[in-house]
Amino acid sequence: MSKIQNIFLYIFGLFATTVSAQTDVDAIMMAKRNLCGGFLVGTNSWSNYWEGKNYRNNENIGVLKSNSIMAMVNYGITDKLNVIASAPYISNSASKGTLRGQEGFQDLSLTVKYEFLSKKFRNSYISLLAFGNFSTPLTDYVADYLPLAIGNQSNTLSGKLMADIQRGRWFATASAGYTYRNNVTIDRDAYYTTEMIYSNEVRMPNLMGFNARIGYRKDADLIVEAVFDQMNTLGGFDMRKNEMPFLSNNMDMGRIGLNFKLPIPKVNGLSLLGNTMYTISGRNVGRSTLFMTGLVYQVEFSKKSK
């Protein structure tokens, strides 16, 4: 009866780069003592961006490309409670200008996923889930170097609620979440936002997100879905004309995309994942396009092997 975990990973292409590689997981639970692990590679790039609300390009950046490889693992503690961990290695570069690119391990992300309601209602299955996520930087990468920094050095805590409804092989999922980001320290001891601040500490505004998808799934083996994702920063300031981006900018982005998951024939438990996301609206972020693909493999631990 075990369902195979379906994991799509969204790298939040906040300004220019992957500010937070967040595992955005769907509504399907993995059964108790099942373990699923895999690798994903992705490329996220943009040449135009929103400077505040002003849409422009920048010939001193050209194309900002962010390549990533991510390891992830998901384990079913019970049928109703899963834990997920992931960690990306990211490499950012600009095709023009003189700035040196950056690469390194970014943030470790740990997610607890809990299905607190699962019910058949007329011809549909309805489930409600709650997520808690913690992320923390794995290395001392430079954050105050946008758009080339690989992350923002913030420790984050997120909570998210999700509702999923399935009828036959068609489903719809909606979720909304809130992310607390702690303040970060930078290498400077003074910086200008909309005022001069004499401190190496930067106040990081929190985030709010909304995600909706509809699609087709067959036994959680074969999934195709369309996604809408909106992420808003709750506060922060706008880049002014010809200003460089800063960690505490008010970064918003709306994206649409497609996900798929296909079983690999003849190899039990192995699946191919694919994901593409396109930015349709934004503020202080690059208009990025993301492509990601990977393989995940699922193993079921028998009770004896425990």
Partner: peptide, 22 residues
């Protein structure tokens, strides 16, 4: 615990003000 964590997180987030040294 989960709900409590979310609530405390929201409360905690109010105390992030950075006071400039000057």
């Amino acid at each position: 615990i989960f709900i409590a964590a979310i609530l405390s997180l929201i409360i905690y987030s109010c105390s992030k003000e950075v006071v400039s040294d000057h």
